[in-house]
Amino acid sequence: MSEAGPVPGGGDAPVVIRVESLSKTFPRAPGGRRPPSLKALLAGRLGADERRAVLCDVDLEVRRGECLALLGANGSGKTTLLRLLAGIYRPDAGRVATRGRVATLLELGTGFHDELTARENVLVNAALLGLAPREAAARVGSILAFAGLADRETDPLRTLSSGMVVRLGFSVAVHLDPDVLLVDEVLSVGDVAFRKRSLERIAALRDAGCTIVFASHEAPIVERLATRAVLLEAGRLLEEGSAADVARGYFGGGA
């Protein structure tokens, strides 16, 4: 469509992720939690009084082609926000709406099984990530090729090095052809060459109009990829702006 302007995240591109006053709470850590009473269960207030807020009243809009970096300390709610965007969790309050096919790259090689072959694992992983089995079968060749493992197709996964396994997982994720890609701190794995290639691949997806939201602790990755950034602190959206500004504020002057 023509509205896919040359400027990523241009002000008139359609909104593909809309988050409205989103809140999410979790039960307190199991050790410190009193098991919920039967009465609470029947009253539908299961453990309602012993929960901690992980995200508080977050509002966010992401337009097509934007690459949004989520910054913030450990426990600030980045992963929870990504999981809510993916539909893994349901909000306690507020709304999350996304448009198009959403793919998650929250972990590389989700659902991989050591005893299955590289090819079988690709098919399982792709299906779990939302690809129809027929589509997965059509793409398995190019997925293996991108991972550089075309000749290891029928080897059990356990015979592959851990670096190869990571490559395979990444290769599946970038072959999903998503409209929205959610990425959680997996861009800093693998050896130097692989990191470089994976960053290039994500940048290429962004340039092709894929909307990306990613969490990262690394200033160079944020500056390289992001068109915009938000800073989370204790579950609240503290700051929002251009990647350069927010990153400078968060990582400090040195970044």
Partner: peptide, 9 residues
């Protein structure tokens, strides 16, 4: 659990 918290399944 690992699977369920990482893909929208």
């Amino acid at each position: 659990g690992r699977l369920l918290t990482r893909v929208a399944l």
